[in-house]
C-alpha cells in the first residue's frame, strides 16, 4: 500500500493563492456580477461627486468616502452571497468538502476575492476623485481610506456568507439587493444623514454600513467619528454573521 505523500508548505502556499486567484477570476468573468460591482460606484461617483458637485471639493470628497463604503459592500453581499447559495445548491460545496481541500481554503479564497475587488474599486474611485472631482488628500488619508475599504469589505463578506447559507440560489440575488440598497440608503451613503428625518438618523447606527460609512468619511477628513466604536460595531457584526453562517453550513452543508 502506498503511503500518503507529503504536502509541502510550498504546495500549500500555491494552493491557497491559486484558489484565491481563481475565485477572483471566476467572478471577474461573470459580467452580471463584475460589471455592476465595478461600474456602479464609479458611475455614482461621476454623477454625485463630479456632475452635481460643481467644483465643491468637499462634496467630491464626501462622495468618495460614501461611494467607497457603498462599493466595498457588494463583493461580499453579491459575490459571496450568490456564489455560496449556488455552490451549496449545485453540489460544489459538497465536492469541495469531499476533496482534500484544507480548512479555510474555500472561505479564504472568497475573502481574498472580495478584498481584491475592494482594491479595484478603491483604485477606480481614487483615480476619478483626483482626475475629475479635484480631490486632494494627504497620503495618510489615502492610506486610511484604503485600509477602511479593504477591511470594510469583510463584515459584508460575513453577511454575504450568511445570505448564501440561508437563501436558495433563486432567492439570493433578490435578498442581497434588498439588503444592499435600503441599507446603504438608510446608512446615509446616498444622502447625508443630517438631511434625513430624525427617526432614520437615530436608528442609523444599527446598520453596519453606517459605521463603515463613518470610518470612510473620517478617512477623507470629513467627520470626527468615534473610530473604535465603529470598528467594534463592525467587528461584532462580522463575528456574529460568521458564527451563524458557519453553524448553518455545518448543519446543512
Amino acid at each position: 500500500m502506498e503511503t500518503t505523500g507529503t504536502m509541502t508548505s510550498r504546495r500549500y502556499a500555491d494552493l491557497y493563492l491559486r484558489d484565491a486567484w481563481y475565485e477572483f477570476v471566476r467572478l471577474l468573468r461573470a459580467p452580471a456580477a463584475a460589471i455592476p460591482m465595478l461600474t456602479f460606484p464609479a458611475m455614482f461617483y461621476v454623477l454625485f461627486g463630479v456632475v452635481f458637485a460643481h467644483h465643491a471639493p468637499q462634496q467630491a470628497s464626501w462622495v468618495l468616502g460614501s461611494m467607497g463604503a457603498f462599493g466595498v459592500m457588494a463583493p461580499g453581499l453579491f459575490g459571496i452571497g450568490i456564489g455560496v447559495s449556488i455552490e451549496r445548491e449545485r453540489g460544489l460545496l459538497a465536492l469541495k468538502r469531499a476533496m482534500p481541500v484544507p480548512p479555510g481554503a474555500y472561505l479564504g479564497a472568497k475573502l481574498a476575492m472580495a478584498i481584491l475587488f475592494a482594491l479595484a474599486i478603491f483604485i477606480i474611485l481614487g483615480v476619478l476623485a483626483v482626475a475629475l472631482g479635484g480631490v486632494r488628500l494627504e497620503l495618510s488619508e489615502w492610506l486610511a481610506l484604503l485600509a477602511t475599504m479593504l477591511l470594510g469589505a469583510l463584515p459584508f463578506c460575513a453577511l454575504g456568507l450568511l445570505v448564501g447559507t440561508l437563501a436558495s440560489a433563486q432567492a439570493a440575488p433578490a435578498v442581497a439587493n434588498l439588503i444592499y440598497l435600503p441599507m446603504s440608503f438608510l446608512s446615509g451613503l446616498w444622502i447625508p444623514l443630517k438631511a434625513m428625518p430624525p427617526l432614520l438618523r437615530h436608528v442609523a447606527p444599527i446598520w453596519p454600513a453606517y459605521h463603515l460609512g463613518q470610518l470612510a468619511l473620517e478617512s477623507v477628513g470629513l467627520v470626527q467619528a468615534s473610530t473604535w466604536h465603529a470598528v467594534f460595531a463592525l467587528l461584532a457584526f462580522t463575528v456574529a454573521c460568521f458564527a451563524l453562517a458557519t453553524r448553518r453550513l455545518q448543519r446543512v452543508g
Binding site: V25, R26, R29, G91, L92, A94, L95
Partner: peptide
C-alpha cells in the same frame, strides 16, 4: 458526486 457542478466561468 452525482450533483457536483463546477464554476461555469472557469
Amino acid at each position: 458526486l452525482q450533483a457536483g457542478s463546477l464554476p461555469e466561468t472557469l
